[in-house]
Simulated scan of single mutants.
Amino acid sequence: MTLQGTTPSSAFRLQVRGQAVGVATGGAVPDPVSAAAAPVVVLVHGAGMDRTVWQQQTRWLAHHGYTPLAVDLPGHGNSGGEPLTSVADMSEWLSEAVTAVGERLACEQVRLVGHSMGSLVCTETAAADHRRVARLVLMGTAATMPVHPTLLGAAQANERLAPELMTAWGHGSRAHIATNPTPGLWMAGGAVALLERARNGVIHIDLRACAAYEAGDAAARVRCPATVVVGSEDKMTPPRAAAPLIADFADCDVVHLQGAGHMMMNEDPAGVRSALATALA
């Protein structure tokens, strides 16, 4: 596994287990010198998605004192390889990616930010690697993530209904009445389009991994400070579902985003950026 810097036109390339990994860096090209002054932040997406869900955050981070690396999990976005079938496998992969980042950018620690399925992956990684994870930020998280049978069946059949259900349940009421903090963009349509880009079987594999996951004592084993960001209108991981995790963290802050649903990074980008500014400092 190696991490290679390239020309600005191709930005930044990462390889883990011999496979290319899609990475978004917010328009900056990191190197050891810049990373020494700007802490590295690794961002991990949710089920069926990819690094582009962080586009409202990566550029801001890159220009406000951080080195963001939003990665595509294997089999997602621009990453090669097959999608991993369990949160535990994804966590092992992420740990290897953190190792590669540390070697290339000469950084001893990273900050992990995860959304939905990515929050589970980041929690497991932080629980297993106390030395290299300095801070943990979780969005749309829960101790367990059961999946509705209708959604799981639609995903298994690669039906458009799966992206439609994930989009409908994943957004708060404001997103359903054409309210968008970024004028000119259709939030719901963009979410469906993103999920439809997933390769056949990927959404089903991810949802099965979420449904099978149980946090156990993972949060209790995390030693770094944690921040949990919850949306008041999150139907997929309601705020109450995060309560067991929050209670188990030794050091945890909770940020409530009023009116935001599960896709809070797009629904309330300013609120998410504010939460990151505080949590990552």
Rank of each mutant, 00 (worst) to 15 (best):
V23Q: 11
W60M: 04
T58N: 05
A24R: 13
A36M: 10
Q15E: 15
A62C: 07
T67N: 02
A24D: 15
T52R: 14
Q19V: 07
G26H: 08
Q56T: 13
T52G: 04
T25V: 09
T52D: 07
G18E: 00
Q56P: 08
G18K: 06
A36H: 14
A37I: 06
D50L: 09
M49N: 11
A38T: 12
T25F: 05
Y66M: 06
T67E: 00
A47W: 06
T25I: 05
P8V: 12
V40T: 04
V41H: 06
L61N: 07
D50H: 14
A11Y: 06
V40Q: 00
L69M: 09
T67K: 03
T52K: 01
L14A: 15
H64C: 05
H63A: 02
V29Q: 06
T58Y: 05
M49F: 10
L61H: 08
T25Q: 05
F12K: 01
A36V: 10
D31A: 14
H45L: 06
A24L: 14
V41F: 09
V40N: 00
D31K: 11
V33L: 10
L69Y: 05
A36I: 06
P39V: 09
R51L: 15
P30F: 04
A35Y: 04
Q57D: 01
W54A: 02
S9C: 09
P8Q: 08
M49L: 14
A20K: 05
V40P: 02
P39M: 07
F12N: 10
Y66A: 05
T58K: 02
V40F: 03
S10H: 12
T25L: 02
L43S: 01
V33W: 05
A35I: 04
T25N: 10
S10Q: 12
A11M: 06
Q56F: 13
A70G: 04
G46C: 05
A36Y: 07
L43R: 00
L43N: 00
G18R: 08
L14D: 02
W54H: 03
P8C: 12
A70T: 01
V21R: 03
A37D: 13
L69K: 02
P68W: 03
D50I: 09
A20G: 14
A62W: 07
M49S: 15
V42P: 12
D50E: 11
P8F: 10
